[in-house]
Design a protein around this nucleic acid. Structure first.
Lengths: 219, 219, 219, 219
DNA sequence: AATGAATGAGGGTTCATTCAT
DNA sequence: AATGAATGAACCCTCATTCAT
């Protein structure tokens, strides 16, 4: 939560630019020009560019992780070991995304760029920060997901989870581009909510797919 | 196809670094140091950094697109309108990937980073280059895929296609990181072939999932 | 003499940091953080960083110069033209130093850093300030020293005086570092008083050394 | 030894500015403006500002240390355990200094600023570099000096050595300023060679001074 | 064909200072 | 009397590129 008007303007400008271009591609000068503040203001208010990114990540991932954690608790409270359908779980995830999307249109692209960062090793410091900051809050959800897919070996689950993550992150991260293509091709733009909805049955089905005999001979 | 020994060494070094770090994150100095050639050699042989990336993309996407196009032709020759199972189509795709992977271990990450680039808007020039260069060769495969999923509306197909692409691109693009996590967690490393195999049933199931009633009321 | 509690805390923090790191190396932020006051407080109370340094110099050089001037007067009062042994004069100097050292452990390093500043041309304004402020008070001592070394040409005296000053200033200015080396090497730390004592015979002997025939032929 | 014309001009400009202002006080822009080269040229040729300082230190301390080491070897060769008069040793030191002074007028101030750096802890990296680079070459001289002052306790020797060093470093480091004062006062400028000569008997006498009973009671 | 040298543009960061309150 | 916010100037460094040879 920014305290001063300048800090607020910086963060807003940064969110827009980060969402559009990515973190590394966005320069301090772009941010401060867009926010119409002094170049040094970022360092004054956020300490460094990384500090700004962390503040932004807090704004977006914080409410999301909180919401998801609460949803997991609310759903599992009172019920002992009842299995939850995978579609419902993914719906919980989507709902958490739409929750952050309500307040801020830029939320989802930003959000996924942060997840991207959490995976990619390019900015080791930020990766560790994100891991430490949000890991515990998200573990509950992952555990629930795992329980539903019990018959699957651990490694199979691991990879399927990341296929899923990849589909989501990639889609939302490049949502701007993809929506542009859709418009060109079908002369029609999808609301992001609709796109998220489309994901639910696809990801659920993918998760529940019968595991193939993974031998190399066939190929 | 590199002409001189120097150009060859540059391209090999670039492939390794691009695959490991990405395009923007790799500097000319890193490339030329790794290749043990003069800094100016890249510009001399490839005109610019972008020229080098295009050359690399040619090397990787070219054979892949060619292979896939041929596979599509071979499969559809003589058969009129016969529908092909989606699993078989995805398997064709995977096979094309493994084909470029044979020659070069770095191939798959490089390959997917290029696809990533083809989507992302950050490097408009490269995006256009890749689109123009390879679009036609891949359209046959896309059409085949579309035919199998006929009952689906066009937009639904569009988005599912990109969910799939996202899962593949994201996974392979960050394969290095993901394999690292897998090793930490399960003390076991998957060969990339195995990971590709795991994708087939997941992606196929996702594609065939019963489309949900995509209204907003539920969420 | 600081007027408010804030000014006092600033000056104390500044003394510590100046003594440890030097003037240029110490930032306003370090000072105000250490003093736990607002960043702007230094400029408010002292006008500028230079103003703060001048205030500090007043605190340290003032009592020292006063003490030395008094000592010179006391010693020469009533005695007409009696020559004083050089060792006694240097002892007077050392005694003046220990006088300021009594009140404040940081005094001596601070003190010598100021002398350093008085010589060095880097901060012209401060140099002039120090020269104007304390020159007259110290001249009595210099004159006394000169009288004892009468047979020496003026220039010879001038240079020997500065050799001496150099030995003292350098040693005390870097006392922290030197004591660290001593501790490493001999596992023993000298009190600053002891070091000052060691100087007396050395400097005295240096001053009284038979002047060599300073021709260039020998070298 | 700089290879290109630009590198040469940079180093010459740097030497002048370093000698006049010190290392930290001299900026890359000053250097490159003075040398009339591009700002990036320093980083190209020397890697960094620190790299430039190291190159400069190599140029000045290298020949000096070499010369002194050779002089020590030459003097002690053949003679077993013969004690050498302290005056002769200091003369050796002065001779080594004048040796570097021959080629370059800026040599001595630069030279002593480097020694200053070697003592002061402000630039830890450079301090370590200098220590590692030149320590061994200078140890022979120190040992010889120590042998002549055998009756003295180790700590006494340690401090006297640094008094001496202080006198030399301080004088030469601020030679520009001191000569200015001399000119103002006596309307006469000393050649640096003369000043070095003046040091010999003074430092020698200081070294050989009868150690006082260093008790605190007297002061 | 190839390279060492050099460059302009732009990167994030730090500094003492000032302003409005 | 005192401060949080903000700033302009300057810091060192890195980048892809180009030039002369």
């Amino acid at each position: 939560m920014p305290q001063s008007k300048t800090a607020l303007r910086i963060q807003q400008a940064a969110e827009t630019l980060f969402a559009e271009q990515g973190f590394a591609e966005t320069t301090m000068r772009q941010i401060t020009t867009e926010a119409d503040v002094n170049l040094a203001a970022v360092n004054y208010h956020f300490g460094s560019k990384q500090g700004l990114i962390q503040a932004v990540s807090e704004t977006y991932l914080g409410p999301f992780a909180e919401y998801l954690q609460d949803a997991v608790h609310a759903r599992t409270a009172g019920t002992s070991n009842e299995t939850i359908e995978i579609e419902e779980l993914i719906e919980m995830l989507v709902r958490a995304m739409l929750y952050v999307h309500q307040d801020n249109t830029r939320a989802l692209p930003m959000f996924t760029r942060l997840l991207e960062l959490a995976y990619l090793g390019s900015q080791e410091d930020l990766r560790l920060f994100l891991a430490r900051r949000f890991k515990t809050k998200l573990e509950g959800f992952i555990d629930l997901l795992r329980k539903d897919t019990a018959p699957m070996p651990d490694e199979e689950f691991f990879w399927r989870l990341h296929f899923m993550m990849g589909a989501m992150i990639f889609t939302l991260s490049n949502y701007h581009t993809l929506r542009g293509i859709e418009k060109e091709t079908y002369n029609q733009e999808a609301a992001i909510e609709q796109t998220l909805h489309r994901m639910i049955p696809v990801l659920a089905a993918g998760f529940q797919a019968r595991a193939e005999n993974t031998q190399f001979c066939r190929l």
